[in-house]
């Protein structure tokens, strides 16, 4: 839902980042207001996951220029855990398996870390069980997954549901969902999309990274951005995604070439 007067949650300005010696983000600009749903599309390797990890504070990426402001605060100077606590959430393209750490305990510790930041009381194991059982319904997940180690041996689709369960528990203000639709079967896609829709409201915002229109059929974006070579090349409405579906990305190469010619 686009409201021009809604508060800005996330403001990315001319963001540059590299991994080791390789420049990947080369001037990303993006403004996200409360209530909005954004989709970022783009070729493999265009820098979508890099953008999401830079926003979440992954130590492998170094910001070399630009700024990211979250609700008026400089996001880039915060530790990853602090970003999460104040409401920035990253749903991983490849959720990490952590053998030996119980999923239930992991969910409880992280939920309490977020609650403490919001000034809410810590939930004991019993109160948390109640909460988690309620939130499991958002993604129609079997409670048996709570007793397993974090993501260990989960199927691709189960991992993605577990990500959305975490989102449901943490109630972020900005949720960045990196290819949450990949690996989901048709029913699971519907369920997960339903969950995301259910969690979206006028006070928060969602950034969906995806390759496919089918996710955007289920979650209607307010804006669609096309990423190429480390920046956002074009922004449009939901019809831009449909256009991409039909035309592919070849035109992107032409625009990039034109841009390069301009600079030269």
């Amino acid at each position: 839902m686009i409201r021009p007067d809604a508060p800005v949650l996330l403001e990315i300005r001319d963001l540059h980042a590299r991994v080791e010696d390789k420049a990947i983000l080369k001037g990303v600009n993006l403004t996200i207001r409360a209530g909005e749903i954004h989709a970022v599309m783009g070729r493999n390797g265009s820098g979508k996951s890099t953008l999401s990890k830079v926003l979440a504070g992954h130590p492998a990426y170094t910001v070399t220029g630009g700024s990211v402001t979250y609700r008026g605060e400089n996001l880039l100077e915060l530790d990853p855990e602090q970003r999460a606590r104040i409401g920035v959430f990253l749903g991983f393209q490849y959720p990490v398996e952590i053998p030996g750490v119980s999923n239930l305990e992991f969910l409880r510790v992280s939920t309490n870390a977020r609650r403490a930041e919001k000034g809410e009381e810590e939930l004991d194991t019993f109160a948390f069980e109640d909460l988690v059982r309620e939130r499991l319904k958002v993604v129609q997940m079997d409670p048996a997954f709570l007793d397993r180690s974090v993501n260990e041996g989960f199927s691709g689709g189960e991992k993605k549901r577990n990500e959305i369960l975490q989102m449901a528990l943490l109630e972020p203000l900005v949720a960045i969902l990196d290819e949450t639709d990949s690996g989901l079967d048709i029913d699971a896609l519907r369920i997960v999309a339903g969950g995301v829709n259910q969690l979206a409201n006028a006070d928060n915002a969602t950034l969906l990274i995806t390759h496919y229109q089918r996710l955007l059929d289920a979650i209607t974006p307010d804006y669609v951005h096309v990423m190429a070579a480390g920046r956002i090349l074009r922004t449009g409405g939901k019809e831009l995604a449909l256009e991409l579906e039909q035309r592919g990305y070849d035109w992107v190469d032409q625009e990039l070439a034109a841009l390069a010619a301009e600079v030269a």
Binding site: D79, E81, L90, V101, E105, F106, A113
Partner: peptide, 21 residues
């Protein structure tokens, strides 16, 4: 990083991983 990205502090995250070990 996965644990930290869910709000768990670096030390506590390291503790959880050690305990798992």
């Amino acid at each position: 990083f996965y644990l930290q990205s869910r709000g768990i502090g670096a030390d506590q995250a390291a503790g959880l991983l050690q305990r798992a070990f």
